[in-house]
């Protein structure tokens, strides 16, 4: 069957735009509401870890540090769990029309990514307000975001495909995501982690991206994968590409039967 690739580009875009409209009901206040969740989480964590546990004092600009970490992690969790249900949730469409099934999770991830960019603008405003000095390091940020997006869509594709077969992946993934939240230096400064563990910790693409992004915005002495692992910090990159390859293959192999199984 001949497939016109171009028309699927249009379909992806229409679905992503629709997703965006639905998410914010087409209004600015809709977007503000969507900020409430990460902001509240940030506020609670900031009060607990800055004022109660006094962790914040060891990190310069702890508020910006924490907000950026939460914003990025929130993107990962939201995108993966939304994509997970993207095939099953659109069963009606899948059963009645043919289009490459991969469009569904990709459209959702693009919607989320657009939200992430908006959120990062808010974080940037917050950073300016907190008088974080501007450096040209910020131009490296997009590279980390690309890595982050690829990692997120890879995990999403895998989850979306296996969710069709195993409907109890939902709560399992929630638990795993909770674990990842604490296995990634989001709340705590890396200086609290023993070097042995830190080396393992920084192998995670999530840790690499979040610490990397922090280093581009806040700069100063942020521990990045480079500073901990040196050249071994290509390992998270290789991990991302490997997961992408596996997930893509799993998804495409299972996609042929989605219409029968959803």
């Amino acid at each position: 069957m001949k497939i016109n690739k171009l028309k699927y580009y249009d379909l992806t875009r229409e679905l992503a735009i629709t997703g965006f409209k639905m998410k914010y009901q087409g209004s600015f206040f809709g977007y503000l509401w969507s900020l409430m969740k990460p902001l509240f989480l940030f506020l609670i964590l900031y009060i607990v870890f800055n004022n109660v546990f006094k962790l914040g004092s060891t990190i310069p600009y702890y508020a910006v540090y924490l907000l950026l970490g939460i914003t990025l992690f929130q993107f990962f969790v939201e995108t993966t769990s939304m994509c997970m249900g993207s095939i099953v949730g659109n069963g009606d469409l899948i059963r009645k029309v043919y289009f490459p099934r991969i469009i569904m999770p990709i459209a959702i991830s693009l919607t989320s990514f657009a939200t992430l960019i908006l959120n990062l603008v808010v974080v940037a405003g917050f950073a300016m307000f907190s008088k974080v000095p501007f450096t040209f390091n910020i131009f490296i940020l997009p590279l980390y975001l690309v890595e982050f997006y690829i990692f997120t869509i890879s995990v999403s594709l895998f989850l979306a495909a296996i969710f069709v077969k195993f409907r109890d992946i939902g709560p399992i993934w929630e638990v795993i995501a909770q674990g990842l939240f604490y296995a990634t230096p989001i709340l705590y400064p890396t200086s609290l982690v023993p070097t042995r563990f830190l080396k393992i910790l920084m192998l995670s693409p999530l840790a690499q991206v979040i610490q990397g992004a922090r280093s581009t915005i806040i700069s100063g002495n942020i521990t990045t994968s480079w500073s901990v692992l040196g050249w071994y910090s290509v390992i998270p990159f290789i991990l991302v590409i490997t997961i992408l390859g596996i997930s893509y293959m799993v998804f495409q192999k299972m996609a042929a039967k989605f219409a029968e199984e959803v």
Partner: peptide, 22 residues
């Protein structure tokens, strides 16, 4: 197929059109 009740008729034409391959 794929029409969204929350969108306007106009928006639905673009969405539905994309689903039909336009």
């Amino acid at each position: 197929v794929g029409f969204n009740p929350e969108l306007t008729g106009r928006e639905n034409l673009f969405l539905g059109g994309a689903i039909l391959g336009l």
